[in-house]
Simulated scan of single mutants.
Amino acid sequence: MFRDLSRPIETGMPTYPGDPDVTLAPDATHETDGFATSELRTGTHAGTHVDAPRHTLPDGATVDAVDPGRFAFDARLVDLRPLEPREPITAEALSEAVEEGPSSVDSDADLLVCRTGWAARWGTERYRDHPYLTEAAAAWCRTRGVGVGIDAFGPDPTPTAVDSLSADDEPDGTPAHDVFLNNDLPIVENLCDLDGLPARFRLYAFPLRLRDGDGSPVRAVAEWEA
């Protein structure tokens, strides 16, 4: 079976604060030109996308330099719900969720797909207030050689639209990103439709071949045996 886990690319879709707006508009039309083409303007981290190491590391590999086979994952679904807004996901909480699930992290899993429940808030300001991985949780993944997929803007906190929700002890910068990307471990962001997936599945998230790209939108597709 197959399931699309990616957000549609469309004008006005949510983007990370400060990133370029997305527009998808007609260029040529059947009525005027006899054929149709469109103009797409987007940032490299719009919608469902992968991060290349260059995203946070000045000397990191670019998306076009990564072997395309690295974007076909043996994925393990980790249900972390329920979570509060901006709740830190600790190494202990991640470990517990993995061990309580139907299959543990083993040698053939290379991506943990973390279901936080925040996909339901897509299109609202509250989507910014997603839970996030602590640096220690990212390090827990690193020691097991697994990357992360998440149904939110990313594994680090996102600036909030409601100042009162931001906690004083939230980390600065991108510590979780840095742990993964410093170790060439994948990050897939803004996944959706995770409900009902099996514990183990294949995830395909191939990026565009952007020259010197720091990331790229993807069509993220899950595959499993019925």
Rank of each mutant, 00 (worst) to 15 (best):
I150K: 00
A139M: 10
V162Y: 14
R126V: 11
A93E: 03
E84I: 00
A119Y: 13
D129K: 09
T160G: 12
G123L: 07
V98N: 08
S107L: 13
D59H: 13
L133G: 00
S38L: 09
P58M: 10
D64C: 08
A65V: 00
P82K: 04
R81M: 03
A36W: 12
A161G: 12
S95M: 02
T62N: 05
S95F: 11
G101N: 06
W118G: 01
V66F: 01
S104K: 14
D151E: 01
G69D: 00
P159R: 09
G101P: 13
T160Y: 15
R144G: 02
A52H: 10
W118S: 00
D110V: 15
R115M: 05
G43P: 15
A152Q: 02
A46K: 03
A91M: 12
P159K: 02
R121W: 11
V148E: 01
F73W: 10
A65C: 06
A137W: 04
A139C: 11
D79I: 07
G154V: 04
E84P: 01
D156W: 12
G117T: 09
R142D: 03
T160P: 09
P131M: 10
T158W: 09
F71K: 08
R115K: 03
V105W: 05
G154L: 00
R115N: 01
D74C: 07
D156T: 05
W140Y: 15
L112F: 04
E135T: 10
A75R: 02
L165S: 05
A109W: 05
T42V: 15
L83R: 12
G117S: 11
T42S: 14
G145V: 06
D51H: 15
C114Q: 08
S107H: 09
G117P: 08
A136T: 02
E125V: 15
P159M: 01
T62C: 15
A52G: 03
A65L: 07
D110R: 11
S103T: 03
T134L: 01
G147W: 03
V66H: 01
T56K: 14
A97S: 13
E87A: 10
P85E: 01
H55C: 10
G123H: 15
V105N: 00
R126F: 14
R144C: 09
A119C: 10
H130K: 05
